[in-house]
């Protein structure tokens, strides 16, 4: 067991397990920075996991499939934005509504497309390829971790950098942060907070959809009912614990990814499968507790007690 924990395969698996959470955590952080909690991540991921399968099968091309899935993710983000920003629907309830529609809608759609209610095995989808990075793959140990990952995993790492630059070096990022921190201030200089939050939620939808796409086109090679299994919610916690910054979200996602990878590996042991399934959620719960407690203590200390 210990030996397999130190093997490059395990670290490789961590990165793999981190990917969907990371995409969703980045999605959550950009929404949070604009002042909105995007709990609909879960539903967007679930929808996108199915869309990924359908679109890539339809076009026979993973890249086009991914692109179409991202467009669909953007549209769901837009829908959420419309209700939250224009119709003033409570953002949590709107998200619950979207997640409900995802649970039902994916089954409905899958049944319509494949005639199966449980999984999409009958659809010939195309997954994103694994990429071997020349030279790096020769490095012992490290090469086995960093090379040979799914394309989406590399994209997720790239997304961390892109999102960091976007939020902290670009005008739109500045506006998003301003709107999230003091909406009235941003509006007073003519920034349309609504427009900015629209953009943030659409972007959030796109990022979440990439995470969803990976679930059925990388992590697995098919769609199964309810396959997001709370990853969107875990990502919410990851983003919050990472201070809603891309780099912070990345670090916490790695931790949760490690928990998932560990759970996957424990499947090979005698520990009951049901208990192993609890590991990612338990890790998130404990992590959230510790993080919140530290914040609470810090605030109390500042107040002088």
């Amino acid at each position: 067991m210990l030996q397999s924990l130190l093997s490059p395969d395990f670290f490789n698996a961590i990165l793999r397990a981190t990917t969907p959470i990371l995409f969703a955590a980045l999605a959550s952080s950009v929404a949070s920075k604009s002042g909105i909690t995007n709990m609909a991540l879960e539903g967007i991921m679930l929808f996108s996991a199915l869309f990924g399968v359908i679109f890539s099968a339809m076009t026979g091309n993973f890249a086009v499939g991914l692109l179409l899935t991202m467009v669909a993710g953007a549209l769901i983000g837009l829908l959420l934005a419309f209700f939250v920003l224009n119709l003033k629907t409570d953002e949590i309830l709107a998200a619950i509504a979207i997640n409900l529609m995802a649970t039902g809608g994916t089954v409905l759609l899958m049944l319509a497309v494949s005639g199966d209610r449980g999984s999409s095995t009958s659809i010939a989808s195309v997954s994103a390829p694994k990429i071997v990075i020349p030279l790096i793959d020769r490095i012992p140990f490290l090469g086995q971790i960093l090379s040979g990952q799914n394309l989406m995993t590399y994209l997720s790492l790239l997304a961390v950098i892109v999102m960091h630059v976007f939020l902290y070096k670009m005008p739109l990022g500045l506006k998003i942060r301003a709107v999230g921190e003091n909406k009235n201030a941003a509006e007073s200089v003519g920034i349309s907070a609504r427009k900015i939050q629209y953009i943030a939620l659409i972007l959030s939808g796109v990022l979440a959809s990439m995470g969803g796409y990976f679930l059925s086109g990388g992590y697995m090679n098919m769609f199964t009912k309810d396959m997001s299994a709370g990853k969107g919610y875990i990502a919410l916690a990851a983003s919050a614990m990472g201070g809603d910054t891309p780099v912070g979200a990345f670090l916490v996602s790695l931790l949760f990814g490690a928990a998932q990878a560990l759970a996957n590996m424990m499947q090979l042991t005698d520990i009951p499968h049901e208990l192993i399934q609890m590991v990612p959620y338990l890790t998130t719960l404990v992590g959230l507790g510790i993080y919140s407690y530290a914040g609470l203590k810090r605030r109390q200390k500042l107040a002088g007690k």
Binding site: Y233, L236, Y281
Partner: peptide, 26 residues
């Protein structure tokens, strides 16, 4: 958890739903 650590009940309640499922199945 909210009282002792300040963790938002929204996220923690979402997590324990899955714990309930797997504990019950176990």
């Amino acid at each position: 958890m909210k009282i002792k650590t300040g963790a938002p009940e929204l996220v923690s309640s979402l997590m324990i739903n899955y714990l309930s499922l797997w504990l019950c199945t176990f």
